[in-house]
Deep mutational scan, measured.
Amino acid sequence: ATNIVGKVKWYNSTKNAGFIEQDNGGKDVFVHKSAVDAAGLHSLEEGQDVIFDLEEKQGKAYAVNLRIK
């Protein structure tokens, strides 16, 4: 899926990971530091509006192509 709108639920820069809550009510999506880095960002803030694509690896959904809304 592409161009999904959501809000950062939480992001821990020590653990280099967090979750994004989908505005469409879907399951929360894992976001890794690699996606944050690829977006040219240093970190994510709780409640921040984002747009992202979903990629599945080994049955788990990940946020990729992250951008700030």
Rank of each mutant, 00 (worst) to 15 (best):
A1N: 12
A1Q: 12
A1C: 13
A1D: 09
T2V: 13
T2A: 09
T2L: 12
T2H: 12
N3R: 07
N3K: 05
N3Y: 06
I4G: 04
I4T: 04
I4P: 01
I4W: 06
I4A: 06
I4N: 06
V5Y: 13
V5M: 13
K7G: 01
K7M: 05
K7I: 07
V8E: 00
V8L: 04
K9H: 04
W10Y: 08
W10C: 10
Y11K: 02
Y11C: 05
N12T: 05
S13Y: 10
S13R: 13
S13H: 12
S13W: 10
T14S: 13
K15G: 07
K15S: 09
K15E: 08
K15N: 08
K15D: 07
N16H: 13
N16A: 12
N16G: 15
N16Q: 13
F19T: 06
F19I: 12
F19M: 12
I20A: 01
I20R: 00
Q22S: 09
Q22Y: 15
D23R: 15
D23Y: 15
D23K: 15
D23I: 15
N24L: 09
N24I: 08
N24H: 10
G25H: 07
G26V: 07
G26P: 05
D28F: 10
D28W: 14
V29C: 04
V29Q: 01
F30W: 07
F30V: 05
F30D: 02
F30H: 06
F30S: 03
V31P: 01
V31Q: 00
V31E: 00
V31D: 00
V31G: 01
V31T: 02
H32A: 08
H32I: 06
H32G: 10
K33D: 02
S34R: 10
S34M: 10
S34L: 10
A35N: 03
A35I: 07
A35M: 06
V36A: 03
V36I: 11
V36T: 03
V36W: 04
D37F: 14
D37S: 12
A38N: 08
A38K: 11
A39T: 05
A39N: 02
A39G: 05
G40P: 02
L41N: 02
L41Y: 09
H42I: 12
H42C: 14
S43I: 11
S43G: 13
S43D: 11
L44G: 00
E45A: 12
E45K: 14
E45Q: 13
G47R: 05
Q48A: 09
Q48K: 05
D49T: 15
D49P: 14
V50N: 00
V50F: 03
V50G: 00
V50R: 00
V50C: 05
V50A: 02
I51R: 04
I51G: 02
I51K: 04
F52Q: 00
F52T: 00
F52K: 00
F52N: 00
D53P: 00
D53I: 03
L54K: 07
E56G: 06
E56S: 11
K57L: 09
K57H: 11
Q58K: 12
Q58S: 12
Q58Y: 14
G59D: 06
G59K: 05
K60E: 07
K60N: 07
K60H: 10
K60F: 12
A61D: 06
A61I: 15
Y62Q: 09
Y62W: 13
Y62D: 02
A63I: 04
V64W: 07
V64D: 02
V64F: 05
N65A: 04
N65Y: 03
N65M: 03
N65W: 02
L66Q: 00
R67S: 05
R67L: 04
R67G: 03
R67M: 05
R67H: 06
K69G: 11
